[in-house]
Design a protein around this nucleic acid. Sequence first.
DNA 1: AGAATTTGACCTAA
DNA 2: TTAGGTCAAATTCT
Length: 331
Amino acid sequence: MARSMEIVDGNNGGGSHGGLVVTELSHIKELVRQLDVHLGGSHELCKILASQIFSLTERSISIITSSSSSGSLDGGGLKRSAADAGLASPFSATPTSGVTDGPFKNAKKRKVMEKRRHQVRVSSPAGDNPVEDGHSWRKYGQKEILGAKNPRGYYRCTHRHSQGCMATKQVQRTDEDSTLFDVIYHGEHTCVQRPPAAPEHNPEANSLLQSLTAGLTVKTEGLPPLATTAPFYLSSSTPASIRSMAMLGAELHSPFSAAPSTSENWGVSPATSDSNHVASYLPLEDAEWRRGQNELQEVVSALVAAGAPPAPAMDSLDELLDIDDIASFFA
DNA sequence: AGAATTTGACCTAA
DNA sequence: TTAGGTCAAATTCT
């Protein structure tokens, strides 16, 4: 599970990331274009999404190719965006908190530690539990958290013992809205667990999406394909193309909006190595979708910043590797 | 009966 | 010393 490490330790970062991003975005652009072409007229929303993503990607490419100095990630904008999402607490105050435990404790290089952290904000239609995320979890603890109205629940993968899967998550009802949950994922699933089968509503689009995810996986070239880590689960009744876009939106959005831990994410601080993903995810209502599009735009600007500075692109690329997760989601 | 959850105790980093 | 994370016995659920 050293997939991200190889990138990091390989020291293949630096200024070449802009080019890499351009390449990848070009690929995405082409595939999305194909997707757009192949989608029937009946999927209005899909077409809209495809065209928006297409134009966003195109814009990002032009930005990257035409600009090389677009401000730093330390700028206030991104920080604000994450703060606005209400995700500050675990990350902003103590960037290094909570992720240096476990079997990775003794690793000499913290970069080598593969303890990923995703924070996802989910809503609960039923008001009791956050949406199913495609993995089975077993609760092993609950704790009152200082300053928080609601306790935090601790979950580990059901297959912890049977398969040694060390993935854990923490679920906490937000203070503001009791139907919203902050879910923090730690580690990655190494268990083999099949998410609920996703019926193929549109085989043609599906195959396209497969090629899309295959294309995205190129980023992890030379790295072992990763098993299942779906930070959240979208209903199988949701058209595959939409699920795909959702994953793109949320996953791409996450690394760059993790403002409070920005320095960490970008490898500025050698003291911490864990990649923290902070995503704000809500169900697929149209309004939310439009919001997701905006967030995607933030990604574009973040990508520009990622390509500009000399070194920090390391962890940014590392973050991008999470696209693997998207790919595995559709596998 | 076995699996899952609850909950107080215990551990550890800050 | 304290807050947060984990353990594990007791309890509840299926």
